[in-house]
Deep mutational scan, measured.
Amino acid sequence: TETAWISLVTALHLVLGLNAVLGLLLLRWQF
């Protein structure tokens, strides 16, 4: 079960990281 939790947490971190990068790019394009 630990491996499943680790994979789930890493997936969440990757998604949050991608969202942060996309958000910064969108803000930079708007201004």
Rank of each mutant, 00 (worst) to 15 (best):
T10L: 06
G17M: 13
G23Y: 04
R28P: 04
T3V: 12
N19M: 04
L27V: 09
L16Q: 10
T1I: 13
T3D: 03
L25W: 13
W29I: 15
A20R: 04
G23P: 02
R28A: 06
W5Y: 14
V21P: 05
G23Q: 01
F31L: 12
A20T: 07
T10G: 05
G17A: 14
A20L: 14
L22H: 00
E2R: 01
A11Q: 00
G17K: 03
L24P: 10
E2D: 11
L14Y: 10
W29Q: 15
V21Y: 09
I6M: 07
L8H: 04
N19F: 01
L25I: 10
E2Q: 03
Q30M: 15
V15G: 13
L27Y: 03
G23N: 06
V9A: 00
E2C: 00
E2L: 05
V21C: 09
F31C: 12
T3A: 13
L24M: 12
H13P: 08
H13A: 15
L18A: 08
W5G: 03
A11C: 11
V15M: 13
L18I: 12
N19W: 02
I6G: 00
L16M: 12
T10W: 05
N19T: 11
G23F: 15
T3S: 10
I6S: 04
G23I: 15
G17S: 08
R28Q: 02
L22I: 07
H13E: 11
T3R: 07
W5E: 01
L16R: 03
L14W: 03
L8R: 03
W29D: 05
L24S: 04
V15Q: 02
A4T: 06
A20P: 04
L18E: 08
L26T: 08
L24A: 13
A11L: 11
W5P: 01
G17R: 03
H13M: 11
L26A: 08
L14D: 00
L14M: 07
V21F: 12
W29R: 15
L26P: 12
R28F: 03
T3Q: 07
G23H: 00
W5A: 02
L16G: 03
T10Q: 02
L22Q: 05
G23C: 15
W5C: 04
L12F: 13
G17W: 08
L26M: 10
L25E: 02
V9R: 07
L24C: 13
W29H: 15
E2S: 02
L24I: 12
L25D: 05
T3G: 11
E2V: 03
L8W: 07
L18Y: 04
L14T: 07
L25N: 02
L8T: 06
L12Y: 02
Q30L: 12
R28H: 02
S7L: 14
G23T: 15
R28C: 09
L12W: 10
L27M: 10
L27A: 05
L25Q: 10
I6C: 03
A11K: 05
L16W: 08
L26F: 09
L24R: 05
L27N: 05
V15L: 14
R28L: 10
L18T: 05
L25H: 11
A20H: 01
R28T: 08
W29L: 15
I6E: 00
L24F: 14
G17T: 11
N19V: 00
W29F: 15
V9S: 03
L26D: 04
G17F: 14
L18F: 10
Q30Y: 15
N19I: 05
W29N: 15
V21E: 09
N19S: 09
S7M: 13
E2F: 01
L25G: 07
L8C: 06
F31Y: 13
W29M: 15
A20Y: 08
L25C: 15
L26H: 03
V15C: 14
H13Q: 11
A11T: 08
A4W: 11
L8E: 05
T10A: 12
H13C: 15
S7C: 14
A20Q: 04
W29A: 15
V15P: 01
T3P: 14
L22C: 12
L27W: 10
W5V: 09
G23S: 13
V9D: 08
L14K: 00
V15N: 00
L24N: 01
L22K: 02
L14I: 13
V9T: 09
I6H: 01
